[in-house]
Write a protein that binds this DNA or RNA. Structure first.
Lengths: 191, 191
DNA sequence: TGTAAACTGCAAACATCGTTCGCAGTTGCG
DNA sequence: CGCAACTGCGAACGATGTTTGCAGTTTACA
């Protein structure tokens, strides 16, 4: 449901209650159960709907690693656009056709790679994980709050805070990390 | 509360309700609010209590990278022991003294590294993320369920499944991935 | 010791949640 | 027209986190 996604984008996953979605649709909460079997169903649909934003998949031209990196970048973008997707990705639920299509597209890109399916499977999982990891880093930012905590027992932390803040280092770590990880996973030699 | 952690270990985070914890303590649900201000408070305490299992921190002998890898391994072990910790780590809540102590210990290990604090901060975040990533991989396993989905539209996926399963590749990818990531983040040259 | 103040435990109640039930109103079809 | 199937949804159920009010107990001080 587009309405549910709009609510989640605006106010987070917790705000996606059946009553809230129904209200946005100007109907009653019970009516939703004519189309959905449960709230979990709704969440699955949301995840799959948003997975469609990964399209169109890049054509596997040139290096397969380049193509995979481009796909991972798309994944990261989607996760930045919809931060609540992270919460969904951890639920053990049925994966939808869009997610499966993306999976298939990854396999297609990896077709020229000589590696067992298990390795490719793991590689896709890692790619997904790294994409989420970096998306969260940007989303959450430096929102660490040492609320009311005395930092004096932590000398190194204290010293670090007294250092003048410098420019963020961040050359494109995302791409480098992903490349070395995938290469390590899919090619016989080490990284 | 130890009781809450026991419940979470046994039945997952969702089972940690105020009433369930109170029942385990043979008391009433409302009584808990004499010691906790909310359920979120309880979850924060659980996370910090479990972070204490990261002790004792290794002495920074030899290479700092070796030591960090050892600490990341401890993190992964904790996440495997308490899978619900993953759900907690995504909440933007106050971090407790144990987590801060671990953070401080990481900084201590990184003391000989010539890098701005921001880079070290990111490195710790990445180390944490990778540890969780690998812990989840082992916990969740291959529990993907293409429940009732027709896979014929996904030719590469179909082909992959027809391949005979081979032994898991998994040389110690965890360590290699972590090393290259941390090195890339903390040293001037590329990985 | 006696009394007032403070603290503690907790049953009951409230708001909100996901979900189910049953009943009207509508539609489709012979 | 009549009947069956479908649709929308108010009301209610069970569970959740949290608040409230009231007893029972401990503490502090004259």
């Amino acid at each position: 449901m587009t309405a549910a996604i709009a609510i989640a984008d605006a106010s987070g996953l917790a705000a996606v209650s059946m009553r809230a979605v129904a209200a946005r649709l100007e109907t009653g909460a019970a009516s939703l159960y004519r189309y959905l079997s449960s709230r979990d169903d709704l969440l699955d649909l949301m995840a799959d709907r948003v997975a469609a934003e990964l399209r169109p998949y890049p054509e596997p031209d040139g290096d397969w690693l380049d193509t995979l990196v481009r796909m991972a970048r798309a994944q990261r973008a989607v996760h930045e656009r919809h931060p609540w997707l992270f919460e969904l990705s951890q639920r053990a639920s049925a994966i939808g056709p869009e997610a499966l299509a993306f999976f298939d597209a990854c396999l297609k890109v990896m077709a020229p790679v000589e590696a067992p399916f298990a390795a490719k499977f793991e590689a896709i999982g890692m790619m997904n994980g790294v994409a989420i990891l970096f998306a969260r880093k940007r989303t959450a930012g430096e929102s660490l709050t040492f609320v009311g905590l005395d930092v004096t027992p932590y000398p190194y932390l204290l010293a670090a805070f007294s250092e003048p803040v410098s420019a963020p280092p961040a050359t494109d770590l995302f791409e480098r990390a992903l490349r070395s990880l995938l290469r390590g996973l899919l090619t016989p030699d080490g990284a």
